[in-house]
Structure formats: C-alpha cells, structure tokens
Amino acid sequence: MPVIDYIDAIRLAMKEEMERDEDVFVLGEDVGLKGGVFTTTKGLQEQFGELRAMDTPLAESAIAGVAIGAAMYGMKPIAEMQYSDFMFPATNQIISEAAKIRYRSNNDWTCPVVVRAPIGGGVFGGLYHSQCPESVFFGTPGLKIVAPYRAYDAKGLLKAAVRDPDPVIYFENKKCYKLINGEVPEEDYTVPIGKANVLREGEDITVIGYSLPLLFVEQAAEDLAGEGISAHILDLRTLQPLDKEAILEAVRRTGKVLIIHEDNKTGGIGAEVSAIIAEELLYELDAPIMRLCGPDVPAMPINPPGEKFFMLNKEKVKEAMRNLALY
C-alpha cells in the first residue's frame, strides 16, 4: 500500500469520485485554475474541465447556496470553503436549508452536498485562518459532520460523504495536510460515517479525540508507555452522529477518560461526549471525566507565544494523560 499525505488522500478521493460519477463536481474559491490555495484540488480542472472544477466569486453564502441547489437537483457537489473561518456567511444556507430540506419536504427533496472546510491552527494563521467551528454546526439535526485524522480516513470518509444522500460537512485539518501521512489503499473503499475507530488499545486511560490533536495523543501515548501507562485511544472520525457505542465501550475499558480537541472547551464536542458518558456510565467511572481543549478566548492569537499557548501539543497532552493515569 502506498504511503501518501493527508492532502493527497483528499485530492485522490475527489478525483476518483469525479471519475466514478459525472454528477460529482467541485466548486469554491481558486479551486479551478489555481488548484486550491493548499493544492487540494490541483489537477482537477485540467482533468475534468472548468465546469466540474469551478472557480467561484468570493462569496461563501453563494458557494454553499449554489451547491445546495445543485444537490437538490440531483448533482453531487463538493463545495470548498477556503478556510472554515470564512464559512460563517454560509451557515444560514447550511443550517437552514441543507440540513432541513429532507425533513421540510417530507422526503420529497434531498441534498447530497459535501461542504469541505479546513480547520485548525498552529500554522501561524492568526485569528481568521485558524478557527475550529465544529461547535457552530454540531447539534444541528440533519447535518452529518466528519473530521478525519488519518490519511486513510481522510480519503474513505470523503468518498463516503460524496456518496451520502444527505449533507455532510467535511472538516479537514490544514495542519494535517503535509504533516500526517499513512498507508492508503489504491482500490476503492469508503469509511462508514458514524463509526469511531480505536487507534491504540490500552488499559489505564481512555483518550477520545478527533483530528490533529490525536497526533499528540499518539505521540504522548508512545512516551507514556515507557512510564508504564497504557492508553486506549479512540478517534471519533465522525462528530455527528457520534458513535455512542464506541465511546461507551472505550470508556468502559478503563473507567478513566480524557477528551481532547482543539475547538474551545465550552460547548465543544467534548461537552457532549462527556454528557453521554455521564448519562450512561456513571457506575463504571473511576475518575472525573476530563477535557483538554483550546482555551475559551475569542480566537487564535497571531503572535507566536500566544499561538503556542493556545495550541495543544505533545507535552500538554502528555501531562493531562499522566495526571489522569495517576488519579
């Protein structure tokens, strides 16, 4: 199996889906001629033409709205938000239209749209190129939200999202693009939406997370194994719907759970995961449910020390994991 970068896994997924189904097309700012500001859509316009790798004006509301309309009409659009930070003008389209159309029309209409948006900081992007807006869309029934961490899942989940009959938000982590790589099969496969994945088996603590911070968790787990602490790591992969069974099974394993994400703590995914655990597993908990998340400050600072303070890293994660193990 070839080892490829996370960003190439995303590009391959789009390329293969566009080859498989001519209803699939991508649209967004600079996705055509330039091939995307991160090169995510590089080569797609050459291969599929301007109409299937479509450059749009700088208007996220229009990108989402056009994609939603096309999807309702039977196309399979992949709408790219250049940065998830710029996604907010499109929230009305996504939350009020895409998420509701099936329900609102009593199954007469569907909206098989995929909205791709790069999340996350640590790239010296400052306030408007670093946000994690998961919590804005999380808890909107009618939306599916995926946030892959491994290259394998990046490709498999994007293919699953394209083939899903309902709107899917695909949060790809921009820091993972070149940082994360892994074995990705050449043959066609999908990763089911709504299924979490155990990254590492362990007995002392359970760590639940998604996207980039799992890299720090894996690195920290490796270090902590040397200290005799064995960590069980669960990659949520899909944020909505959450894989409840997998969460409960992972927590049951150790009775001690740490939830990690880069989005800020208050009202984040971790709050819901924590509530599920508290509702279902009180009598199997051996320690308070712990969370390690971005701080509740308005945005990623632009200055390097501030960014370092905001971002999770291996040391912060390791310390939290060790404290939970020692509890």
Binding site: G255, D286, N323
Partner: peptide
Amino acid sequence: VQASPGAAAPAGDSEDAPMRGRFSPAVQQ
C-alpha cells in the same frame, strides 16, 4: 511538565492519603 506532577505524590502511605476513603462508582461496583 516535570515540575507539575508533584500533586501525584506516591500513594499508599496511610497518614498522607486524603483520597483513601473516596471511592469512585467503578470501584464501588
């Protein structure tokens, strides 16, 4: 990091074990 886990003092010493009588739900079960 190395400075902070001082909180996790070596356990077992009954004189210095304020958490000795606190049982988690999992432990009780």
